[in-house]
């Protein structure tokens, strides 16, 4: 039992950005053990570029199908945002076809917004599909989860917000993700939600995160792991909660930035609310634990990871 778990026992967390399609069942088990009750999986790229629209279709279907079910087996609620990511927006012929099938998916159960969309390289094609998807979000009255670029980040973040406002979208309906110390002030001042990704080496470290919460307070700030196929940590949210607690941040502030703010931000979709989390997942008819390739017939859902014996 990792010691950080002790200090946050009983707390509930919502990792509002994590790519579970790239993670194992061991991760799901560890996340559930650490208090994660819900995850949000934004549609993104897979590391390997897709070459046909059917690859997108199957990916979107898995976000509302297999992945949701997989999460439910560990008692975790799975939500997603649907969209065409900025990298793949650059293949314009394919992007057109993807835009045609997106409306099939945005009204599915568990879809809480359009995302993650925005800029990567800040090309004209990226801008075109960012704008087109902002219009889609407006039409469907869905929140937008915006990916901000690694390179030329500050300008890219400002530009993403300018364009959203230009399309008449209320900043309260937009979650600007992957913030850092350089972007957060403008995002909050302009009335947007600010997501922070705790991701080693390239995004935020969690000691820095503690300082951000100390400086700006917990309003409109939310934390995620963005764990994916890279070197990342699906326990980043509970670990950061533990670190905040250790550094004297109040339980209420921790609760806001690791659970409640994200739920409030995505609630306008009508697909997520805090009261969902009060009900055990198993009472939902559609999410029984019996039988699947993950938990083959009759196998106990829990295995002892420390034992050398495998039955």
């Amino acid at each position: 039992m990792s010691s950080f778990l002790e200090s946050i026992r009983g707390m509930k967390f919502f990792d509002m950005h994590v790519h579970m399609i790239s993670r194992t069942t061991d991760d799901y088990q560890a996340m559930a053990d650490a208090g994660i009750v819900a995850v949000l999986e934004p549609a993104f790229w897979l590391g390997q570029p897709r070459t046909g629209v059917d690859s997108f279709r199957d990916y979107y279907a898995s976000l509302v199908g297999w992945e949701r079910f997989r999460a439910s087996q560990f008692g975790i609620r799975h939500y997603c945002t649907m969209g065409l990511n900025s990298k793949e927006a650059n293949q314009e012929a394919l992007a057109e076809q993807v835009m045609e099938i997106l409306p099939l998916f945005i009204y599915k159960e568990g879809v809480v917004g359009i995302g993650e969309i925005g800029f990567d390289d800040q090309t004209p094609a990226e801008e075109k599909y960012y704008r087109a998807q902002l219009e889609l979000a407006k039409e469907a009255n869905l929140p937008v989860q915006v990916h901000t670029p690694h390179r030329d980040k500050k300008r890219g973040t400002t530009r993403s917000m300018d364009i959203a406002i230009e399309h008449g979208i209320d900043p309260g309906m937009v979650i600007i993700d992957h913030n850092n110390e350089e972007t957060v002030r403008e995002v909050l001042d302009r009335g947007f939600w600010a997501g922070f990704t705790i991701y080693p080496f390239t995004k935020m470290g969690n000691e820095r995160m503690v300082e951000v919460v100390r400086q700006y307070g917990p309003d409109r700030i939310m934390i995620n792991s963005a764990a994916d196929w890279g070197i990342s940590d699906p326990l980043a949210v509970p670990k950061t909660a533990a670190l905040m607690k250790q550094n004297g941040i109040s339980d209420e502030a921790i609760r806001l930035v690791t659970l409640e703010n994200a739920v409030t931000a995505f609630a306008p979709s009508g697909q997520i609310s805090l009261s969902d989390f009060d009900q055990p997942l198993t009472i939902d008819q559609s999410q029984r634990f019996n039988g699947s390739s993950v938990l083959r017939g009759g196998q106990a859902p829990r295995i002892d990871k420390d034992s050398t014996i495998i039955k």
Binding site: V64, I101, G110
Partner: peptide, 10 residues
């Protein structure tokens, strides 16, 4: 069928 989520498939 091709675009269905799990409850739609049911």
């Amino acid at each position: 069928f091709r675009a269905a989520e799990m409850n739609e498939l049911v």
